[in-house]
């Protein structure tokens, strides 16, 4: 067991920044290849005319989840050293709802706006200025929001721990759910693509 490499001291802080940059290049590359540089394509997810956001996101989640699961089963990765963010249920649900609204109004999320701006979209550049303003407002309001921000703390809890079932079972259920979702997404796309075409013609 010698992964995650960084946690086993295979390289230091300075080198980790180079790793960050290279991983970021891969992240940005695949986001752009998926079509996530286009705000119209991203927003179309919320009008059921293009399910790319759902398909790409859940394929990525399933890929990384399965990879991590098997690498831990094979003893390559020590799962306890992989960062799991703390759960603060109420602020995460409210923040998620707000973020969803911002996604529809703005057309991007922070990562995709960087890709979109890098490929020349002016609206994405303005969106980034908006993020900066939003983070600033949050920071200024932080003294007022602090209590809510820290509410519903559950610690580093995962779905298998919450439901008291095995890690492998949850992995299996997530895969099942994703595959079901993909079948549904393809069906919706076909159904609505035909309808949209009919309206336009």
């Amino acid at each position: 067991m010698n992964a995650p490499f960084f946690k086993f001291g295979l390289f230091g802080d300075e080198a980790s920044l180079i790793v960050a940059f290279i991983i970021g290049i891969g992240f940005g590359f695949f986001l752009e290849r998926a079509g996530f540089g286009s705000g119209r394509k991203l927003a179309a997810q919320f009008y059921f005319t293009d399910m790319t956001v759902f398909k790409v996101m859940f394929t990525a989640i399933v890929t990384a989840m399965l990879g991590l699961f098997w690498l831990s089963v094979l003893g390559v990765v020590d799962l306890s050293l992989v960062y799991v963010s703390q759960t603060y249920l109420a602020p995460q649900i409210v923040g998620g709802l707000i973020l969803g609204v911002g996604f529809v109004i703005g057309g991007y999320c922070p990562g995709t706006s960087c890709v979109s701006a890098a490929t020349g979209r002016y609206d994405a550049m303005i969106y980034i200025l908006g993020i900066i303003a939003g983070v600033f407002v949050f920071g200024e309001a932080y003294p007022l929001l602090k209590d809510f921000y820290s509410s519903g703390a559950m610690g580093k809890v995962t779905l298998p721990e919450l439901f008291g079932v095995s890690y492998g079972l949850v992995v299996f259920l997530v895969v099942l759910m994703a595959v079901g979702g993909f079948v549904g997404a393809e069906w919706v796309e076909k159904k609505l693509a035909a309808k949209v075409k009919g309206v336009q013609q």
Binding site: L99, G106, A133
Partner: peptide, 29 residues
């Protein structure tokens, strides 16, 4: 939209990348 997103992402301690994608793959509640 960017402003709303920025505010929401801070309240939720992350955005679609850090929470949904990453946290989703490690099965964070």
């Amino acid at each position: 939209g960017g402003g709303i997103m920025g505010f929401g992402a801070k309240l939720a301690r992350g955005c679609t990348s850090g929470q949904a994608l990453t946290g989703g793959a490690v099965l964070g509640v």
